[in-house]
Design a protein around this nucleic acid. Structure first.
Lengths: 198, 198, 198, 198
DNA sequence: GATGAATGAGTGTTCATTCAT
DNA sequence: GATGAATGAACACTCATTCAT
């Protein structure tokens, strides 16, 4: 009996995974709006009804990706090399956050989704979003430590970093990856942060 | 007789204007995809059929805005102060192009539309787009005149400028205009161009 | 004054002719259903409103062609050579009626229209339609004169003639004129009439 | 369990049948173009959406009928009595093909559809259409066996047969079945074939 | 005589979602 | 757990027709 349940549970997990993957790939290729639940079901090899067994609605399907976004950044925060000063920590974090935004399926899909659905406010600045809070704290620390000129408010600096990040990700989407992204990130982040230096 | 004709023509122009305005405002607020022809007709105070009397289809309604985009930039090119050197010309043009992108209905709606419909490739880099060509020529000139370090290719520089422009416009859209955009443009463009200096 | 009216009247006739021709050519090429009033107006070089000035509605536009159909047959009746006996008169009339059906724009368009709009009953047999009456009278006469076997009712014979006529016209439409129609008419009519001979 | 599945499947089949019948009857009565999907749904007693669950689009609804046309003729070919000579085989086949064209829903609806949509070329002569190929082969055989006068090419003969077939079917449609079709078929086919005899 | 702006019901089609099985 | 039949509102778009000018 328990064996059977286990195999059931296993199958359920597998099905959920299949749906997840199918949805991700289709959203990635055609965009949220252009993919129908039927198509996801077909690709996942299950019925429409089953889709709704695992996800309340279509939005829930895409939210599972965007929900991981903050986890990605939080993981990154823990990877910051210990021996850097607050300014170098900020530089390291920003460069790697942008780079990873681009490499992590979850983040890049979340970004694409947010672009197409601005009314959801997914990208809006909010002190509650862990990523924004982290960024702001790091900027504040660097500023407090005298690395950054005082005529730049931390709020403005965070905004400029976000502008850079989004500009790069957007360009990457537009040009469909037709350039070498890491040097561009490095150069532009350095350009920005150096221009803020005390 | 001529008065009568005029009054008919006038009314027609007014109706077209009403449709134009209604479409623009609805697209601006809810995005192209989320606005139906019925809603535009309602807001314009006319029938759906009349919408199609003036515009071949929904796309034609949005294209009337986006088609003017390059004209806006071309007009700007003619406004560049005469007495600047090639580097200052570039700086002036980029700062004002971004600023105007944001103020001109046509450009900002075109940008929003392009974000939602990346498959149209409206924003893709192409030597044929006058704006991109102008930008590239100005960068080349500044580079040829020795204002820009040779380790930056003009292609890369144009890309970085576009990244900045799009990042700023996107942030402005996301935050719904909740910050002072002109200083941000000025500072970030300066930051970028200074970092490229020879 | 009378000159002006005359020129007005002339212009009116010309406009009507233009509309007629435009409608005919478009119906001929694309079929009644696929041609819109707007397209006819464009081709005729006038406004939609003017179309309705001359014709009550779209049906009236096509009916002007079909209304001429009976005139065509009646004209033909008067052309029958005088010196033939009643059987030969019938043969002559049927052969020429079919041939002319195919050559006269009015008839061939009327036929096409009737095929596409069977619900109008345009082709239905009716003692009132002059063509059918003429045909029937000629058959009766030939039968009365002993040229036709009595086991064929005139009603049946008329039907067989119509079957032949319509079959040929239809084939001609289907194959878009890709065969020599007159010999086919001659041979098939002869084949039919000979098989009816007393 | 299997009962339950069966009942679901049964119901689905019934619904599909209902849609099929509703579509057929409406197309038959009013013609393809004049029947809307809404009307079919109403008559079938289901929603429009469900129509599209079973059929990709309106065309698919009519094609299910017309697609079977050649099968009907092929089945007929296999029914030809064995002991006939090539001329009698031809006569048998033609008489029965016409008769069956009229009795088989598929063929008669296909014919009606083709009449209304000549641009589709459904009825056009083509060596690829099995029915035309069969007909041609039988004519050739009869001709080779000396049953048919050499001054008639097989191509011409096939055309004449088709003219007869279509003329009869068309007349039957026009007169809405108001005559006894089988004797007419028999007599006219005999009349034609006898007139071709060597 | 002539214009064309305006109407609005109608078309085929899509799709997220529900629910009986 | 899983199915897929069923829903129906919504969409972009068409077009014969009217009527003020």
């Amino acid at each position: 009996m328990s064996d059977r349940l286990t195999s059931r549970a296993k199958q359920a997990l597998e099905t959920k995974k299949k749906i997840q993957d199918a949805a991700f790939e289709l959203f990635e290729e055609y965009g949220y709006d252009s993919v129908s639940m039927q198509e996801i079901a077909n690709k996942a090899g299950c019925s429409i009804g089953n889709l709704y067994h695992y996800y309340k609605n279509k939005d829930a399907l895409v939210l599972q990706f965007t929900d991981h976004v903050d986890e990605v950044y939080q993981a990154l925060e823990n990877e910051i090399p210990e021996d850097l000063d607050s300014f170098e920590r900020l530089r390291w974090f920003v460069v790697n956050a942008i780079s990873r935004s681009n490499k992590e399926k979850a983040v890049s899909l979340g970004f694409a989704h947010a672009l197409k659905n601005p009314e959801l406010g997914t990208l809006n600045y909010s002190e509650k979003r862990p990523y924004y809070r982290t960024l702001r704290n790091m900027v504040r620390q660097a500023r407090a430590d005298g690395h950054i000129a005082k005529d730049n408010s931390s709020c403005d600096i965070v905004r400029k970093i976000l502008i850079l990040q989004r500009g790069i990700l957007l360009e990457w989407r537009i040009e469909e990856g037709a350039f070498d992204i890491d040097p561009v990130i490095e150069q532009m982040v350095n350009g920005l942060l150096n221009s803020l230096k005390a």
